[in-house]
Design a protein around this nucleic acid. Structure first.
Lengths: 110, 110
DNA sequence: TTGACATGCAACCAAATAGTTGCCTATAAG
DNA sequence: CTTATAGGCAACTATTTGGTTGCATGTCAA
């Protein structure tokens, strides 16, 4: 459908710096490369490479505006692997979880 | 608490062979190294290394039984990153998701 | 137009990764 | 006891990865 390459997404998420960049974009979307560099102990070029990898995985999209480049987070691929892959392993726990919830509600009178 | 090292989990999940091993253990838990090797185009040693990485990330536990070693999947770390990390990015989508679906239905393509 | 600023591009480097081969150890079976 | 089977360990290799430096390009502002 889109660039739904699970492998690229998993590989992109494997690096702590890239997850941090996603966290930052989550806090404030649409940041420039320069802004995303601030406070990180990396060169601008390194950050640019990480952002390129995130873009290849479709986790980030960018658009140039004048001499700046704005970066936007795209949660769709994360949602996709959550649905197609992660939930599968959670399912086993879900039944236990709902039982627990119910037990807590019943017990505390909500 | 446990070996709740998010980074190790993400890195372990980054490799397609390791995800395949998890899939296989999900289908049938408690397999031996030899069983897990079958059908894979890798040496036994390579598979053993992957399993070691999965164990370091606490995604798999193993126990020796006679001359065999049984491997068991542990869904807790996956659940953990789903709760602490992935759901965060999904939350934003929840409201946008229905709108997106509708948009895709109306205007399929881009 | 000139300079400062934001980003792009390419070559290079060290370390990590994924895989191999070769050999050793331990257990089960004949 | 001997042999086949299941796995462990270590050295080595090629490729990928994460990062750097240096320089080029494009755009805004004075």
């Amino acid at each position: 459908m889109f660039g739904m390459n699970d492998d690229a997404v998993f590989r992109a998420l494997a690096d702590a710096s890239r997850r941090q960049l996603l966290d930052r974009l989550y806090e404030q979307n649409g940041q420039t490369l320069g802004e995303l560099c601030q406070g990180l102990e990396m060169t601008r070029q390194a950050v640019a490479k990480h952002l390129a990898i995130l873009q290849e995985a479709n986790l980030v999209s960018a658009q140039r505006q004048g001499r700046e480049k704005l970066h936007f987070i795209n949660p769709v691929p994360i949602n996709h692997i959550a649905e197609r892959w992660i939930n599968k392993f959670e399912r086993r726990q879900l039944s236990a979880l709902s039982a627990l919830k119910k037990a807590l509600e019943d017990d505390s009178g909500q």
